[in-house]
């Protein structure tokens, strides 16, 4: 059975660290980074990239449209 692999790209500077994507992710892929961006926000990142299936839930709930999602069969 083909496995689906996804990837989330966060525009770090536009992320406001609201964390909505973190709870929206059904596979616990995303976390807020300990590091901050230039505005001081703990931006979102893929803490667990291998679990991502590219469902784009994170992108849909992101109020700042700073998430781009890719998906491919592997």
């Amino acid at each position: 059975m083909a496995k689906v692999q996804g990837a989330v790209v966060v525009n770090i500077e536009e992320c406001k660290g609201c964390g909505l994507c973190v709870v929206a992710c059904p596979h616990d892929v995303l976390q807020l980074n300990k590091e901050v961006n230039s505005k001081g926000y703990h931006y979102s990142y893929m803490a667990n990239p291998n679990a991502c299936v590219g469902c784009a839930h994170c992108g849909v709930v992101c109020p700042d449209t700073c998430i781009t999602v890719y998906r491919a069969k592997v």
């Binding site: 990837a7 992108g59 781009t68 890719y70 491919a72």
Partner: peptide, 12 residues
Amino acid sequence: DLIKPENLVYGK
């Protein structure tokens, strides 16, 4: 290899 335009599923 995954982050390519042909694999885009959600963007701005």
